[in-house]
Amino acid sequence: MPGRDSGHTAGAFDIRSVIALLFAIYGAVLVVVGVVQPHAEIEKSAGVNINLWAGVGMLVFAAAFVLWARLRPIRVPDEPAETGEH
């Protein structure tokens, strides 16, 4: 029986990495929009800079996914599993 550390990690092909990248890109765009938008636009949302806060939230979410993928990587076996057929 192979050990838990046999095989290699999924790395960049881990779906959590892809999701983190997408959230980081959208979050960065929202942070930039939130910083440069005029004060009149902020007043339309009850005085809350929603673009800035949503962008920061998305960046935090992306960081959590990256941390999760680093701490608990998915292991891919080096050899295909036997199916039991002869």
Rank of each mutant, 00 (worst) to 15 (best):
E79T: 05
I74H: 00
V32G: 04
I74S: 00
D5I: 00
V66R: 08
G57S: 14
L52H: 06
Y26M: 14
E43P: 00
E85C: 08
G3M: 01
V31S: 02
S6H: 12
T9V: 09
P2M: 11
F61M: 15
A69T: 05
D78Q: 05
G7Y: 01
R72I: 02
L21G: 12
I42H: 01
V66A: 13
R16W: 04
P38D: 10
V31P: 01
E79I: 04
I42C: 02
I50H: 12
E41W: 09
R75L: 03
K44S: 07
W53D: 06
A54P: 08
I19K: 12
H8A: 06
W68L: 15
F23S: 08
A81P: 05
L22T: 14
E43V: 01
A12W: 10
G11T: 08
P38T: 06
W53M: 13
T9F: 03
E85K: 14
L59Y: 03
P73D: 00
V56S: 10
T83F: 14
F61R: 04
S6P: 00
A24R: 01
R75N: 03
A20T: 06
A81D: 14
M1L: 13
D5Y: 02
A20Q: 05
R70Y: 07
A24I: 01
V29E: 13
R70A: 08
G57K: 11
G11A: 15
E79V: 03
M1F: 13
K44Y: 02
W53I: 14
S17N: 15
G34W: 02
A69L: 02
M58Y: 10
G57H: 15
V60Y: 09
H8R: 12
V33N: 07
G34H: 02
A46W: 15
G27T: 00
I25H: 09
R70W: 05
P2R: 04
L30Q: 04
G3Q: 02
E85T: 15
G11S: 12
L30V: 03
A20K: 07
V29Q: 14
P77C: 00
L52R: 11
A40K: 12
E41Q: 10
I15A: 02
M1C: 10
L22M: 15
R16T: 01
P38K: 07
